[in-house]
């Protein structure tokens, strides 16, 4: 379970929140000129990085406000939360420690990602 810092209410238990998927996805500005392929990109395709991820949460059982978060999906560590409308911090600001797609040692497999690299 995560402890999430709502920018309005402070730290609360994850059970009060609902995840809203990737943040900063913008709807095409000129829908009538957009091709099917571009629509598919907007409707169905979302980033799915292992590492630094910008996402939305809503404080469902609290202030009911939406906000954004930066989380490391390989450790579930929430690095930052910020209000909707605020400029997202550049990805370079965060250190992505994964050296390979799996983030695991050169030999072996398993639950290494839960350990902080």
């Amino acid at each position: 379970m995560l402890l999430i810092k709502c920018p309005y209410c402070g730290e609360r238990d994850q059970s009060e929140f609902t995840n809203g998927g990737e943040a900063h996805v913008t709807r095409p500005k000129n829908p009538e000129q957009v091709t099917d392929r571009e629509w598919a990109e907007y409707v169905f395709i979302r980033s799915n990085p292992k590492g630094i991820y910008y996402e939305r949460w809503v404080h469902t059982h609290g202030c009911k406000k939406w906000f954004n978060a930066v989380r490391n999906t390989s450790t579930d560590e929430i690095l930052l939360t910020y209000k909707i409308g605020e400029t997202p911090p550049p990805i370079k600001k965060f250190q992505n420690t994964l050296k390979s797609p799996s983030g695991e040692p050169d030999v072996g497999s398993g639950n290494f990602t839960v350990k902080k690299l």
Binding site: M1, N19, G21, N48, T73, S74, D76, T113, V114
Partner: peptide
Amino acid sequence: DGYNSFTQRGGYN
């Protein structure tokens, strides 16, 4: 879990 993650554990809830 209700969010993207690669942690190979999952939430207790």
